[in-house]
Simulated scan of single mutants.
Amino acid sequence: MTSSQLSAWLMLVPGGLWTGGILIFAVERTNLWRRMPLEQYVVDVRRSLRRADPMLPIFGAIGGAGTLWFALDGSAGGARTLAWIGAALIVLVMISSIVIAEPINTRFRRLPEGTAPERAERYRTIWRRFHFVRTVLALAAFACVSAAAVA
């Protein structure tokens, strides 16, 4: 396996799992969370975060590293440009997740299960809106890296 093939694999497989995880939250969880009573939402969001929170950033970081490697490893012209755009979008999603989503997630994670943080309803709205934008950016990033791999 060449360096280019390995970097393409690292940007596509973990990057695809990362994008898919984000998309599943957008399609499944946030839709349900919007309609759940607050008491049920508080329990469900905490349980969901317990499983997904450690996994998604790891996949995103590996996919992002693979994308940077691909961009730096002699890919040419359009492939390199697409990889750089994909890498920038991945970094944007990761940083915005740390700045916007993680403080909200931490408020839920620190409390005993079933206990709502102050302003939980407001956090639910902010998180849902943020996640919609994050999903669009993650899908755009994956489209760019996929196009780079076949360019």
Rank of each mutant, 00 (worst) to 15 (best):
R50P: 05
L6I: 14
T81G: 13
A143N: 05
W9Q: 04
D44K: 06
V93Q: 04
S48E: 15
M94R: 05
L32E: 01
V150Q: 03
V91C: 08
W18G: 14
P57I: 06
D53R: 11
F25V: 12
A101M: 11
S96Q: 13
G60W: 06
V99D: 07
A87L: 15
S75G: 05
A61L: 14
A148K: 05
E28F: 09
L17T: 00
A88S: 05
Q40S: 11
G74P: 02
A149T: 01
L10F: 15
A141R: 02
L10Q: 11
A147H: 04
I85N: 04
R80L: 00
F130Q: 02
G77T: 01
L6N: 09
I58G: 02
R35E: 12
W9M: 14
L111K: 08
R128V: 00
R29A: 14
L12F: 01
R50Q: 09
W18M: 12
G74I: 00
G15Q: 14
I22A: 09
P112G: 08
P112Y: 00
R51N: 04
E113D: 09
I24H: 06
S146Q: 02
A141D: 05
L89Y: 03
L82T: 07
A71S: 13
G20T: 12
V91K: 00
T106P: 02
S96T: 13
G86E: 04
F142E: 01
P37Y: 11
A116P: 02
E118D: 07
I58W: 11
W9T: 15
Y123T: 01
M36D: 06
A71C: 06
E121Y: 00
L32C: 04
L137C: 15
W84F: 13
W18D: 14
F130G: 02
A71T: 15
E113T: 07
A101S: 13
F142T: 08
R119H: 03
G16Q: 07
W18E: 13
I24E: 02
I100L: 13
G64T: 10
V145Y: 11
G86S: 07
A88T: 03
V145F: 15
R119G: 00
W69E: 06
V42N: 01
R34C: 00
G77R: 01
W33C: 00
L82H: 12
T115I: 03
G77M: 01
R134V: 04
G15Y: 05
Q5G: 09
I90V: 15
A141S: 13
A138I: 12
A101W: 07
G60V: 05
G114L: 08
F132S: 12
P57H: 10
A65F: 08
G63Q: 00
I95T: 11
R80S: 06
V150Y: 03
G20S: 10
W33H: 03
A71M: 08
R35D: 11
C144L: 03
L12H: 05
I98F: 10
I104Q: 10
A61G: 07
A147K: 05
D44C: 08
A79C: 01
V133T: 10
A101N: 12
F132V: 08
A52Q: 11
S4F: 09
